[in-house]
């Protein structure tokens, strides 16, 4: 294998990450398939649209925080993650957890009608109108659609999520070499699986080219949160989940 990593080791890494992913997804593939055509009714969408801005922001913050807790659990189960120093574990999660949530979101996105699973049913972009950040919402939907177009398998989503999380691009890592070694193995495993699954030789390159968009979305989210907080400081301080504030504030 590449860089003296044996195929056996790559396979072990892949299996561990796939298992960790499947054990920590909020919904199984079967559950998502069953829900795929259960969409919020016109009245329900209207109800979301007529909510006060801060109420919908709070609801979204709660959903995101919930999803992030599963991502933390995912990270903990990846062999090698808990062997990193605590500083780096926290740093990688702080900077990468929302990116992983966005990658995972493509599982709960229906590209045929551009809807996403939110509070039990699927709904389109217009459902989030009251947030007052159409740019962010439409960028997130575009991203989900573009990731769906790559038709990734559950295994590829698992390995890609791990590759996004365990990244040497994060500033202030204390043991970047250790992170790099782990990341390289994950990429080799991802490459191996993608070569097996896709006729398209550029599939991996296409997938990797989505990473800058992920990071741009997270920056946009932080900016929108700051703008929102200026107008509704009490909502953020009192009503937002503590973990969300800790990560993004």
């Amino acid at each position: 294998g590449p860089n003296n990593v044996s195929m056996g080791e790559l396979d072990r890494i892949a299996q561990n990450i796939i298992k960790s992913h499947l054990e920590t997804c909020q919904y199984t593939t079967e559950e998502l398939q069953q829900l795929a055509w259960q969409t919020h009714s016109y009245e329900e969408v209207k109800m979301y649209q007529s909510k006060p801005r801060d109420v919908l922001w709070q609801q979204c913050a709660i959903q995101i925080t919930h999803a992030i807790q599963y991502v933390v659990e995912f990270a903990k189960r990846i062999s090698g993650f808990m062997e990193l120093c605590q500083n780096d574990q926290i740093l990688l999660l702080k900077s990468g957890c929302l990116e992983v949530v966005l990658v995972r979101m493509c599982r709960a996105f229906n590209p045929l009608n551009n809807t996403v699973l939110f509070e039990g049913k699927y709904g389109g972009m217009q459902m989030f109108k009251a947030l007052g950040c159409d740019d962010l919402v439409s960028a997130v939907f575009d991203f989900a659609k573009s990731l769906c177009s790559l038709q990734l398998t559950e295994e590829e989503i698992a390995l890609f999520s791990a590759a996004v999380l365990i990244s040497t691009d994060r500033p202030w890592l204390m043991e970047p070499r250790k992170v790099q070694k782990l990341q390289e193995k994950i990429y080799f495993a991802l490459q191996h699986i993608m070569q097996k699954n896709h006729m398209d030789e550029d599939a991996l390159a296409k997938l990797i080219s989505r990473i800058p968009t992920l990071s741009a979305l997270c920056t946009l989210h932080t900016e929108e949160l700051q703008a929102f907080q200026q107008l509704h400081p009490e909502t953020v301080n009192v009503l937002f989940p503590p973990l969300y504030k800790e990560l993004f504030n």
Binding site: V72, K76, Q86, I90, E246
Partner: peptide, 16 residues
């Protein structure tokens, strides 16, 4: 560490 109390706690909790 103080700044990331909850994240720290989640990492410490044994995997459920």
């Amino acid at each position: 560490k103080e700044k990331h109390k909850i994240l720290h706690q989640l990492l410490q909790n044994s995997t459920s």
